[in-house]
Design a protein around this nucleic acid. Structure first.
Lengths: 226, 226
DNA sequence: CTCGATTCTTGACTCTGATCATTCAGCTCG
DNA sequence: CGAGCTGAATGATCAGAGTCAAGAATCGAG
């Protein structure tokens, strides 16, 4: 992936799709490709932030690390998603860490480059505002999930959410079960037990990272009753 | 509070302090004053959003409402704080509700007015981006608190945070204990018991909504040991 | 000042999900 | 092939915080 393909890639990212061609060209030119191997850190809590990222391929986990080293996954980044914008605007060190959970390629867009683009184009600014608002909305939804829902409800919610849109009935877990458990704010043990329970009572079939859901309604009903 | 004083008020709000005088004038002119009595709703989950708010005086609670009516306070708004911006950019219904917990006066700024201002002034846009980023940072911190800290840690964290900056040793709770408990994701009972425990073991003194903290270090240590 | 209504506290009990420990299954690699 | 990982499942136990129920205290309106 070099200059021209970077341009094409950025163009289909919602955030940048509103940009004019020449602006896009400038962004593509200044964007830096970075490769990370599975397990490598992109940045750690406390590192200074110099720009934002867009994931091209692979998978990145964003996590917070508590005092005694306990780690909690906040988000799992999929290709075409951007991350790190908010920190860039705040001009403060990262409050989270990012680690590749698979071999990954990211585009790094330097803060200066983006700031210039924002000043030049109010439509980009508007998009960016909408993007951050969306992020806020999602995080709020997470708070809601963590504080108001039980373990079973969280897992059911995740599965149904993953099925949304597609009409085949298979969820492929994007990461291993430990990581996903942390994302759902569960221990691996509890996650395992919940899947067990859902197999028995909602007819789902778990095969490694592949989960088949023959009956969404049945699964959905598990949310209501205790 | 009428036109001219609205102008002066907006001017000292960080978000708008970067605006040019004439822009500020336009915002002040279009801003709508709204009074709410204690207990009144500003909006409910699902209502359409037409603009953003700035609190002039009083106190507003922002909360999510779960299916069975359970309510969880997300944030307590103090004077000069703004709220509702993110929803405005998303052009989606409110995911939360807002209710006055005291008689309050807010300024409502219509979406159109703000959008125009944003298009005209990239500095305002930048401020707004920083503001939303800050909000995101705070919400992330909340997730961290909810998922990684115990009840005692959350209360201690809240108290120490409230003391930050000031050098007298009194925290005045901004709302009643039920509401604050919900904000900290606790039941009122648990909150009460934690305060009880901190009185015995960290020497804090609770008198209604006033809490005296003679020794911050002692309080801080309660976080570490189980 | 007094009555009624919130709001807060306290006690007894329960339950969800965490922890700890072990076993099992699958891979990878020498 | 088998030794040694890593990830996953399962069982036994525990603890933190929630629930339910009953009082105590505080507030506010008349």
């Amino acid at each position: 992936m070099s200059g021209p393909s970077t341009h094409a890639f950025l163009k289909h990212i919602p955030l940048f799709s509103v940009c004019h061609e020449d602006e896009l060209a400038r962004l593509a030119e200044r964007a830096i490709e970075q490769r990370y191997e599975k397990g490598q850190m992109l940045f750690q809590r406390g590192d200074p932030c110099q720009g934002m990222y867009v994931l091209v391929y692979g998978r990145i986990k964003i996590a917070i690390v508590a005092r005694q080293g306990t780690e909690k996954v906040i988000e799992i980044i999929h290709p075409s998603q951007s991350f790190g914008e908010a920190v860039m605007f705040l001009e403060q060190p990262y409050p989270v860490m990012a680690q590749a959970v698979e071999d990954s390629l990211v585009l790094f867009i330097p803060a200066e480059t983006l700031f210039t683009a924002l000043d030049d184009d109010s439509r980009l600014a508007r998009r960016m505002l909408a993007g951050l608002s969306m992020r806020l909305r999602t995080l709020l939804k997470d708070v809601e999930t963590y504080t108001l829902e039980s373990a079973v409800e969280r897992v059911v919610g995740y599965l149904l959410n993953s099925l949304e849109g597609s009409d085949d009935n298979v969820v492929n877990l994007p990461v291993n079960k430990q990581t996903l458990a942390s994302r759902l704010n569960l221990t691996p043990e509890t996650f395992s037990r919940v899947l067990q329970k859902l197999s028995e009572q909602a007819g789902i079939v778990v095969e490694g990272r592949e989960i088949r859901v023959p009956d969404r309604n049945k699964l959905s009903e598990m949310r209501n009753l205790a």
